[in-house]
Design a protein around this nucleic acid. Structure first.
Lengths: 153, 153
DNA sequence: AGGGTTAAGTTCCTTAAGGGAACCCCGAGT
DNA sequence: ACTCGGGGTTCCCTTAAGGAACTTAACCCT
C-alpha cells in the first residue's frame, strides 16, 4: 500500500497526521488516557491485531507521545501519556463532541464529561487564546507564517 | 487489508474516525475549507491517487460532510463543506495548534490564523461550554452517558 | 462538421499494509 | 522441573493505496 508520508508538507495538520493519523492510533490514545496502559488490555479492548498494536505503540513512543516503562521486575511494560501526548487528548475531546452532535442519534452520547472546575456535565468549545471569543472555521483568515517554505524537519 | 470498521463501538471518537479517519480525508477537508473545491485542484495539490481521491470524496459526500454540486452545464462538479463538515474544521484547527507547538521546529508555524473578532494572530484554546474555564485532558471525569449500550445506529 | 481541449472520473496492475492465528521468550510462583 | 502470563514476533492471506493509462461528455475553434 506504501502510504504516502505527509511529513514533507509545510502544514501542521499533515504533520500531526503523521504522528496519529494511522488507523487505531487515536483509539489507542483514548484507551491509554482512560487508564488502559498495558498491551494485553489494549489488545483485548480494541480487538486490534497484535502485530499492528506493536507497530502503533512503537511509533507513538518514537514520536514522544507515549512513554513505555517497566512496572515489574519481570519484563512487563506499561504505556503512559507524555505531556506531548496529553495535549493530543484535546483532539480526542473535540472529536467526541462532534461525534456526539452528529452521530450519536436518539440514544445520545455514550460518554459524558464532568468538568472539574464547575462540576457540571459539559463539552469543549473552541475559543481564541487571545481575546477569549469563540473561534471557529468561519472566524479566521489564513496567513502565511514563518515556516511556510520550511523544509520539514 | 480489510480495515476494521469502528462504527460499531459505542464511542463518539471511534464513530468520528469512521467518517474522517481514512488516510487523506482530513487533508481533503482542509483543502476544501481553504477554497480548493474541484477534483483536479485537490488531486494536484495533494498528489493523491485519483482513484483514492474519488473514493474519499464519495465517502465524505455520503457522510454528509461535503456536498457535490455542478458548477457548469458541462459535467463539472465542485465540493463544498456542509454545516456538518464545517464543524469538523474545529478538529483541523486543533490539529494545527498541536502541530505548531510540537512539530514546527525552529521555522515556526507554516500558517497563522487571524481571528476576525479581535483582529489578532491567535490560536484556538479549549474551554468548557458551561463555565468558560479551560477544559483539557486532566480537567474532566468520564461518566457513562445515555448512549452507552447503544447499538450504534 | 471535425478535431482539440478540459474536468472528472474509471480501469488495471503492482506493492505494501492490515487481519488473524500460531508461536516464542522470560522471569515468577509452586 | 514445570507451568503461567504478559508482551511481543512470525507467518500467510487479503485488501487497500500508488500510479499511469484510458474514457466520457460537453464546449470551443476553424
Amino acid at each position: 500500500m506504501q502510504r504516502t508520508s505527509f511529513s514533507g508538507m509545510a502544514c501542521s495538520i499533515a504533520r500531526t497526521l503523521d504522528v496519529i493519523g494511522e488507523p487505531w492510533s487515536p483509539l489507542i490514545l483514548r484507551d491509554v488516557w482512560v487508564g488502559m496502559n498495558r498491551f494485553e488490555q489494549l489488545q483485548a479492548d480494541l480487538g486490534i491485531s497484535r502485530k499492528v498494536l506493536t507497530e502503533r505503540l512503537n511509533h507513538l513512543v518514537e514520536q514522544g507521545v507515549l512513554e513505555r516503562r517497566p512496572y515489574d521486575r519481570r519484563p512487563r511494560y506499561e504505556y503512559v501519556l507524555t505531556r506531548k501526548g496529553a495535549e493530543l487528548v484535546d483532539l480526542l475531546m473535540v472529536m467526541k463532541g462532534w461525534g456526539d452532535r452528529w452521530l450519536a442519534g436518539e440514544a445520545g452520547p455514550p460518554v459524558l464529561y464532568r468538568h472539574h472546575a464547575c462540576g457540571e456535565i459539559a463539552d469543549v468549545e473552541l475559543r481564541c487564546d487571545h481575546c477569549g471569543e469563540p473561534m471557529r472555521a468561519d472566524d479566521v483568515d489564513l496567513l502565511p507564517g514563518p515556516g511556510v517554505a520550511g523544509t520539514a524537519t
